[in-house]
Computed example of a mutant assay.
Amino acid sequence: MGVVASVAELGVALRKARKHLGLTQAELALAAGVGVRFLVELEHGKPSVRLALVLRVIDALGGELDLSGLPGEDSGHG
């Protein structure tokens, strides 16, 4: 996907991935353990979604969250 700079861009990326996998919102919500309403709001870029649930959706799509470019990331833990 590349760099995601906003909640709206994240929603678009997740919707594209879901459709690419041929999943309905209800199917993905069930696989991720989230509600359909949550998934609809996430795909539409609602900024107040819960990160833990977003991570479940990403995992259910077979993806992972990869942070890069953060200060100190090359120095290991701490």
Rank of each mutant, 00 (worst) to 15 (best):
D66F: 13
G45N: 09
R37E: 15
A52Y: 07
L53G: 06
L61W: 07
L39K: 03
V4F: 06
A32L: 09
D74P: 02
A13P: 02
Q25F: 05
V4N: 02
S75H: 11
K46N: 06
V34M: 09
G33Y: 04
G78T: 09
G72T: 06
G35Q: 10
L23K: 07
G33K: 08
D74L: 11
A29Y: 12
G76F: 04
P71K: 09
L53P: 03
E9S: 09
K16V: 10
V3H: 13
D74C: 06
F38V: 04
A5C: 07
L55M: 04
A60T: 09
G2D: 05
R50N: 13
E43A: 01
L65V: 08
A8V: 13
L61F: 05
H20K: 13
G22P: 08
L30S: 10
V12P: 03
G11M: 11
A13R: 03
L28I: 00
V3Y: 14
S48R: 08
H20C: 06
A52I: 11
R18I: 13
L28C: 01
L65E: 02
D66I: 07
L42S: 02
L51C: 09
L39N: 00
S48E: 13
M1W: 03
A17V: 04
V3S: 12
E41V: 01
A60I: 02
R18H: 09
L10Q: 00
K19Y: 08
V7A: 11
A5H: 12
L42A: 00
G76M: 07
H44R: 14
G22I: 08
V40G: 00
G78V: 07
G2S: 15
E64S: 13
V34F: 09
D74R: 05
L10K: 01
A31L: 14
G78N: 09
L30R: 15
I58M: 03
L42N: 01
V54M: 05
R37N: 10
V4S: 09
Q25W: 09
S75D: 11
L42T: 00
A17G: 07
V12F: 14
R15Q: 08
L30W: 07
A31F: 02
S68E: 11
V34W: 03
G62I: 07
A5R: 15
E27S: 10
G2K: 11
S68I: 03
L23S: 02
D74H: 15
E73C: 06
R50G: 02
L61E: 05
V3I: 15
L51S: 14
G62Q: 14
T24H: 04
G45I: 13
E27C: 05
G69E: 08
F38S: 06
E64F: 12
D74M: 04
L10Y: 00
G78K: 14
G45D: 15
